[in-house]
Design a protein around this nucleic acid. Structure first.
Lengths: 156, 156
DNA sequence: GCCGGATTGACAACGATTCTCAGATATCTG
DNA sequence: CAGATATCTGAGAATCGTTGTCAATCCGGC
């Protein structure tokens, strides 16, 4: 679960977030896709990212690390993983699609609008509220999107 | 970008019960822009729409009705009105920007994923929750986005 | 009416994403 | 393990929404 973050980290580095998140690696196979070398590379790269990343960023990172994966493949893989629910996708204010490897349970994100550091949060009450409101207006098959933005402690 | 609205003066008329009331026409002047014929045309067209509409749709509609307004102007106008808070903007799943003339108070949308029919909804509890969660994690200057999707009564 | 800055519109330019298609691979079958 | 076959990949072209460019035009104040 999402533990309360240690209020104030010691020597904090403001700019680039320390990429060292032990997130679980998305599994192409679990998404019904052939687990090829490229797809695995994308999955691993995404798992190492602790903030949302765009297809281009993942591609760039892979290239920098020597992994040769075509940009189109990165796009296809991320999109497929997202469709399969293996990763979460959201859009930047500019409309760009960004992805992140997350826990499989339903949750929302608290994102730092400066460095992108993300915390997964849950709100059962909100879930209930959205469903209730929707049904109250006669809407069925309810779903919703909810993101919270703010400036994280390190970026202030 | 519709962010958390700061406390409003107690005077004003309390927002009417969330229903499909005819939206008021966005005012370019109020947004600090010259009220030209084209801008007014865009504003009126948007006000007549009872669902979110894209720049292209507005442009097409205007053309169909004889109003000659350049596509670039439609884009510029909608974008400016959105920045000024005169209209609400959100993104389709495909990343396309869509706009709608809404009440000026902070609210969220319940959108029919089939016909686009939209209902404005309010949830004070949700507002409080997002702020609380964010601060609990040390995030400041909190804002959020929340949309509810479903199939409306007419589309079932 | 006249002037200068704001606005417009046709079209080029852009960036993100998708498509195309030949060649490389993974998986299955025997 | 070999062969057949469906899937996947990659490079570049093609899309698509959106923004930039810039001369012509318009709006509002004087």
């Amino acid at each position: 679960m999402t533990s309360t973050e240690p209020g104030h980290a010691p020597a904090a580095v403001p700019a680039p977030p320390p990429s060292e998140a032990p997130a679980e690696v998305p599994d192409p196979a679990r998404a019904g896709m052939r687990p090829t070398k490229q797809r695995r590379a994308v999955a691993v790269a995404l798992a190492r990212e602790d903030a949302f990343a765009s297809a281009q960023q993942i591609h760039e990172r892979l290239s920098r690390e020597g992994e040769q994966v075509g940009l189109a493949t990165v796009y296809r893989t991320l999109s497929a993983l997202a469709d399969a629910g293996e990763v979460d996708m959201m859009r930047t204010e500019g409309g760009e699609a960004i992805y992140r490897s997350c826990s499989p349970t339903h949750h929302h994100h608290l994102v730092c609008r400066s460095c992108g550091r993300t915390v997964e949060v849950e709100g059962p009450a909100v879930e209930r509220w959205t469903t209730a409101i929707a049904e109250q207006h006669g809407y069925a098959e309810v779903s919703h999107t909810l993101e919270i933005f703010g400036t994280c402690p390190e970026c202030r």
